[in-house]
Nucleic acid binder design. Structure first.
Lengths: 218, 218
DNA sequence: GGACATTTGTTCGTATGTATC
DNA sequence: AGATACATACGAACAAATGTC
């Protein structure tokens, strides 16, 4: 197992919800299972921590990140913010970019949805957003969005209830059309509408009160 | 020396340009100087790598990141993108935020500039941008901008020539005024203008040709 | 082209402190 | 309160890669 793969293996397990939020990540256990030393495991876990997939508690170790609903809302807001500015950049480019990548992913997604392959459809929906940022050609923005979308996948596992996939797909189609016609203001609104719809598909779980004194009304 | 401080110590040395881009960071040397084990140094360096301050070359070790001019431009574009959307979020808040923090930093900066304390003035200019993002209240966006501004400070060390500090300060003042009056479109334009002015203050060094075959015209 | 010194990448054993039962 | 389990940190060690003479 290569050092690079270690993080990937754990990340995949988290994103595919085999490791659920709050789950403890025992370093010794991981090192035995993956056949590498504890140092390498720590190395990987720190990397995942930087991507927001893992949290550390002092002297307690690593856990799969357990987003609160408040964090989830910040997440949606942040992704929408980056994508809103991204469409500005795409439209401001000296020559219009090829939208073939977006069209291809979108077409595949519609097809997957038609076949009721929701798992694939969801993955392609995320790929669509990656394709969108790729059009900016700005590696820093691409990376910022990549990290946020990673966390998005954790959040959906915790809070998602029911998304209106038809409408979300329509948005993607509209977005392609608007990128062609080049109306910046409408694009920004569309991106906002899109993510607001995603937010609405996430239930408002009662998170309880973390602070004990507060919970007991002291 | 606490583990947390290690990264800070190295980061500060980089940001204050005591360690210049391209400078090699020898693990053994660092561990001896800072009085911690090589493991801790490695963790610190990896952390700095995630923040874009340090690059790794396989089997050659860590170096202070040496941004190219192309990367610098991406950096400016990315910061502008985040701040453009940030002002949207600030204006869309249910109740207008207190601009006292921005005003305080701005006042200090004008004062420092008047006293010709450029070092302090530059730091306060960066603080101003941190204050701006703080108004969004979104920790994810705040963190994204924080990382980009870290790299900005390296870039200025390499490429900065002459900035029109008077005009840049005026922009900050204008920004406060526009946040009060609440005109989103003009704010977005201002943020863009601001960073475009910053870009113009950075010289266009001939970056050479990275690809050897191309450089030799093969 | 080869031998050598240096440094990284990685692992292991161990000591220490801290949380949990 | 005591025992146990675990994370944290250190130092020593080794192979592999690199740069140098």
């Amino acid at each position: 197992m290569q050092p690079e793969e270690i993080g990937q293996t754990i990340a995949t397990a988290i994103l595919e919800r085999r490791l659920i939020p709050g789950r403890r990540l025992n370093e010794l256990e991981l090192s035995r299972l993956l056949g590498v030393s504890r140092s390498m495991i720590r190395f990987a876990l720190v990397g995942l921590h930087h991507d927001g997939l893992v949290t550390f508690e002092a002297n307690r170790g690593a856990f799969v990140a357990k987003p609160t609903l408040a964090e989830a809302n910040f997440l949606f807001e942040a992704i929408a913010a980056i994508e809103r500015s991204a469409v500005d950049i795409i439209l401001a480019a000296p020559r219009p970019p090829s939208l073939d990548g977006l069209r291809g992913v979108h077409r595949k997604q519609v097809k997957a949805h038609a076949k009721d392959n929701m798992r694939l459809s969801e993955q392609l929906a995320i790929d669509f957003h990656h394709e969108l940022l790729a059009l900016t050609g700005n590696p820093l923005l691409i990376d910022a969005q990549r990290k946020l979308l990673l966390r998005y996948r954790i959040v959906t596992g915790v809070f998602k209830t029911e998304l209106d996939y038809c409408e979300l797909e329509d948005h993607h189609g509209e977005l392609i059309a608007l990128l062609e016609s080049g109306s910046a203001a409408r694009l920004r609104r569309l991106v906002d509408t899109h993510w607001r719809l995603v937010i609405r598909g996430h239930i408002s779980v009662n998170p309880g009160i973390e602070d004990l004194a507060e919970a007991l009304r002291l």
